[in-house]
């Protein structure tokens, strides 16, 4: 083999580059974080499979219905009607933003912008405590 002083480092760089996921996961990969599911309620507005893949689409649809069309009722997969509201309907069962939403979103590195405008339950609780403390 000619130029092995350049070719062999080249092969090593190539292998390192295409196996980055292995190196960067060394020692760091732990059990996958699980979101905390509501204990009392077993059914969501749609099926579990649908919610897992399409919840962002549903939330977008809810936003458009509530804000742009002024419709606040949604008929779920089970035929029940729900009030369209992130803070009052979704977060009624999924009580924590940190323990439910963020666990998955941080894990898969997606960046929903719900909480840019909406107030997460944790924030509401903090606000309440602050108000009570000042009174």
């Amino acid at each position: 083999m000619y130029n092995s002083d350049k070719v062999i480092p080249g092969i090593i760089i190539f292998i390192i580059f295409f196996t980055i996921p292995m190196w960067l996961n060394l020692g760091g990969a732990k059990a996958i974080p699980r979101p905390e599911l509501p204990k009392e309620e077993k059914n969501c507005v749609e099926s579990k499979e649908y919610m897992r893949a399409y919840h962002m689409k549903l939330l977008l649809k809810w936003r458009n219905m509530a804000i742009r069309e002024g419709k606040r009722t949604f008929v779920g997969a089970d035929g029940k009607t729900y009030l369209i509201s992130l803070q009052n309907t979704c977060m009624k069962c999924h009580k924590s933003n940190e323990k439910f939403c963020d666990r998955c979103h941080k894990f898969v590195a997606t960046h929903p912008d719900c909480w840019h405008c909406h107030i997460a339950p944790e924030e509401v609780a903090k606000l309440r405590r602050w108000q009570n403390g000042n009174r």
Binding site: P21, M22, N25, A29, A53, C104, F107, V108
Partner: peptide, 14 residues
Amino acid sequence: DVYGVKELAIGLAT
């Protein structure tokens, strides 16, 4: 389900 996809991908990588 991206969550499931990542679970599979990490399994493959580790």
